[in-house]
């Protein structure tokens, strides 16, 4: 989820108030290390892998993950970032601002893409991202890694690698950063 989208959605002046911290920085790092090993296990190595971070929230964990994968594999694993804003099904329903440009210099044909996002919610961003990825070649497979799966899916999409399953209410908000994962609400200050 793009941070700026989040900010724009809050043009009404409401702010995020964390209620509980569900993972701290060390938990996040541990989860990423576990996911890195799971990715290698599933794909029998890092051959043909491309890690793609979804703007904006998915980029920091993806960068972290690609660092871990490269370290384990002993060679550089390709990395890219993707902004799916222009592929969303709700462009006409709400303001969407493509913020960061996509950087994906690899032809994805025949590759295994590990798509990384911070929070998996309705699944609509992932759907848009899958459409966007298709324009960069026909990947052999796309796998989805998320830091938090908070439920409430609206589309038949499921993650392959999950940092933490976090049951939430629809009206709650989840924030992921290097410092940890917090759950809270949007409130009028």
């Amino acid at each position: 989820m793009a941070t700026t989208e989040r900010r724009r959605a809050r043009a009404d002046g409401r702010v995020f108030r964390p209620r509980a911290v569900v993972m701290d920085g060390a938990d996040v790092r541990r989860a990423l290390v576990r996911i890195a090993h799971e990715v290698i296990e599933r794909n029998h190595g890092t051959e043909g892998l491309v890690v793609v971070g979804l703007h904006a929230g998915g980029v920091p964990p993806a960068r972290h993950l690609v660092g871990l994968l490269s370290e384990i594999a002993g060679h550089e694993v390709p990395f890219g970032t993707l902004d799916a804003a222009l592929y969303r099904d709700d462009v006409t329903l709400r303001p969407v601002l493509p913020q960061a440009a996509t950087h994906l210099d690899h032809d994805l044909t025949g590759k295994v893409v590990v798509l990384v996002d911070d929070v998996l919610f309705t699944g609509r961003t992932v759907r848009a991202a899958l459409d966007a990825l298709a324009d960069f070649g026909r990947a052999r497979a796309v796998q989805l890694a998320v830091m938090v799966d908070r439920g409430h899916r609206e589309l038949p999409i499921r993650p392959d690698f999950v940092g933490k399953n976090l049951p939430t209410r629809l009206d709650e908000l989840v924030e992921v950063s290097e410092q940890g994962v917090a759950i809270g609400d949007l409130v009028t200050p």
Binding site: A9, R10, D12, F121, T122, H152
Partner: peptide, 14 residues
């Protein structure tokens, strides 16, 4: 901003 219905603004984001 989208309609400031509780939860909906956030929901629209993903």
């Amino acid at each position: 901003a989208p309609a400031p219905l509780e939860g909906l603004a956030d929901r629209a984001e993903r």
